[in-house]
Design a protein around this nucleic acid. Structure first.
Lengths: 398, 398
DNA sequence: TTAATTACTCAAGTAACTTGAATTAAATAT
DNA sequence: ATATTTAATTCAAGTTACTTGAGTAATTAA
């Protein structure tokens, strides 16, 4: 029997209702405070329809009346705003060595974050531990379980079996054939989304970071490896098999450093946490972790300086590519790397002149630093849930 | 006054109707012949709704009854199929030296193509000439003007002012500040879409080429320069400023060939029609055009062979990047280059081993040749119109 | 004080979908 | 042959969420 599933479903009154609620909610969130007449004009709906929808959203606690306008002609506008504290979202970052859990309100504001160390992170061991951590963190945030919108699980890619599976230390052992989403859903009993760290980070910048008003952005994420998250037209990209954005293994130098993937000259061998560790250890430094790197940076260590220099060279090349490929409004740099390093890298970049991004009328810099700091991935996971519930769907009615 | 335009509009019964018609039309087109009960199951609509919709589509001539099933239990299915000849779409490729016009039926089948040479292609001169060519081609295709769905205008990017504007011979002179869409719409009085060549080519492969069943694909387009068209989740990508996919100027060799853009080592200086011309002319060949290249290829010319070899090296690198970035189902190679060259390039590629595309369970090759040949761009323009009218919109209700 | 302006509400109307019962037509079982 | 099963389709009524149009309210400007 052939595959008879349509990519995009048809609509009816009920699905339309859901769509319109999301449209209105999204509009208010991004333009608050605002009134019903304005919403109606902007969203292409009648005032009456908007009135009914805002009533329903207010009854659900998602919108609030915050007052009336004065000073303008005409009847004063009853102003609505998004109520970010009616419900909340949770994100959890799964790493080989640790997991981080974050609870966010619907404006993307961090309420509580927690972390536990873990070793031998097989699915059988890690998933129950993750669920316990989630429960504990929600508890310490003082939020009722029934107001949880969902959990975003963030993992380093790539997913599935390919020539990039299980190389380096980026991947979690034994997770390639696990249906992660289903396992978590079964254990938690709520909506679960699984994403890679870079995409999660990109979404977090759009939900509450440096790109809240931007529909097209690229996020270069420093995890163990290096990832790219892209939001295009307001929607995140994930590829045919969920492996979008594996820029760690693009080749920036022919016959360059040997990489564990079998190629040579991979970007990740120059610009990543792993690359920094390797580079510094080869020069006699020991016990290189985030703290150590922060300390070396504060000491203005010449080896670290040198690493930043060459990492910036390769990153500049990669950013040039990304600009010419995606034509984003801006490129954000961030992830599990100390802020001071990100800043130094940005300062050292020499971005290619020949780029569609090299425009006189830019309203944002070509490169900016991400806002969410070291818990980016977990915050990103929760942000995905927020994004999903407050953004009208790409292919509606699915 | 702030920007109060919502990205995505709300829906109502009428917009829902339009959406559902597109959903059904798209489903039938991709699964014909098919019956109403199956459509209903697949599209998430009731049988009754589908019945009304197919009646309406049939009345418009867009669907046809083609018979009944036999051999199966139950009441035989009244089978519908898409009627590709009720209306038609037109594409026009604008180049600095020529324009090509193509008339396609709604299955993406070429009915007639025509071409005229042009010099000094300023907007003032070229747009009236283009409109005349369009009229003439429609005429010679014997199609009534009122059944024209729209015109897709295809131009080499990048659009707008940037450091890449007007370099090389890829760009049209004087078009950077012209509102092309509006000028054509005014002159033609029908729907007009403007796209770059690579994106148009990608869409044409999805409408009627080698990727009709694929939702995620990348198309590497040989124009004068080199472009990338991407379809992700069934929808084409265009970037924040319409300049998505300028891969000609990604750098594949540090300190490589000097490029007109000011960088060195740009992919386009190794793998493009221009690169071939430069390479061969430096080695004493003269009057290098498409015909000449075809002839040299047939003669197995060693210089051309050598060019293909080094072009393939750089292309392999770029394809590896593209695979790791976009995670597509396949990468298509094509454009304004003789088939024999495309085939030779594909044969010479040495794709990186370390790639998410290097999977055992692939159902398609990593690289395939595009289907539409030398008129790809014009055919692509018309395909965009077809895609647009038969594919449910990305952000519905806009 | 009056006019103009803008927001909002009420009640009725409408379009397009869903539902459930009835009908039809073929394959298969008796 | 006839009855049963299966599945598609139609009919008529019901439902939902939106739109429309008239009317009301609250404020500024003249």
């Amino acid at each position: 029997m052939r595959n008879t599933k349509a990519t995009i479903k048809g609509g009816n009154a009920g699905r339309n209702r859901g769509h319109n609620r999301r449209v209105v909610l999204d509009y208010v969130r991004r333009n608050e405070p605002t009134g019903r007449a304005e919403i109606a004009r902007s969203c292409g709906l009648s005032v009456q329809a908007v009135s009914n929808i805002t009533d329903a959203l207010a009854a659900d606690g998602l919108l609030q009346v915050v007052g009336k306008t004065t000073g303008k002609r005409g009847k004063p506008v009853v102003q609505y705003r998004f109520n970010p504290d009616e419900s909340y979202a949770v994100g959890i970052e799964m790493r080989p060595d640790a997991m981080v859990c974050a609870v966010l309100n619907l404006n993307g504001k961090l309420i509580v974050a927690d972390r536990i160390a873990i070793s031998n992170a097989t699915p059988e061991r890690a998933i129950p531990m993750a669920c316990a951590l989630i429960e504990k963190t929600i508890n310490s945030a003082g939020r009722p379980p029934d107001k949880l919108l969902g959990v975003g699980v963030v993992m380093p890619g790539p997913f599935g079996e390919s020539a990039l599976s299980g190389i380096g230390d980026a991947n979690l052992p034994g997770w390639q054939n696990t249906d992660i989403k289903h396992s978590f859903e079964k254990a938690l009993g709520c909506t679960v989304v699984v994403e890679n760290d870079a995409t999660a980070a990109a979404i977090s910048e759009r939900v509450a970071g440096v790109a809240t008003k931007i529909d097209d952005l690229c996020f270069i994420y420093f995890g163990t490896g290096l990832g790219l998250g892209v939001i295009a037209g307001g929607h995140s990209q994930s590829g045919a098999f969920g492996n979008f954005g594996e820029i760690g293994h693009i080749i920036t130098q022919i016959d360059g450093n040997i990489c564990t993937c079998g190629n040579s000259g991979c970007l990740e061998t120059y610009a990543s946490r792993m690359a920094a560790k390797t580079y510094l250890e080869m020069r006699g430094h020991t016990a290189i972790d985030t703290q150590a790197i922060t300390r070396l940076m504060a000491e203005n260590d010449p080896d670290l300086r040198a690493w930043i220099g060459q990492a910036a060279t390769h990153l500049s090349l990669a950013i040039g590519m990304i600009e010419n490929i995606f034509d984003p409004e801006t490129v954000v740099l961030g992830g599990a790397m100390p802020d001071s390093i990100i800043e130094a890298l940005i300062a050292q970049l020499t971005l290619p002149h020949g780029s569609v991004a090299n425009r006189k009328d830019r309203s944002m810099p070509r490169i900016i630093k991400g806002a969410s700091g070291r818990n980016t991935a977990a915050i990103g996971g929760a942000s995905i849930i927020i994004h999903q519930t407050t953004t009208p769907a790409l292919s509606l009615f699915n």
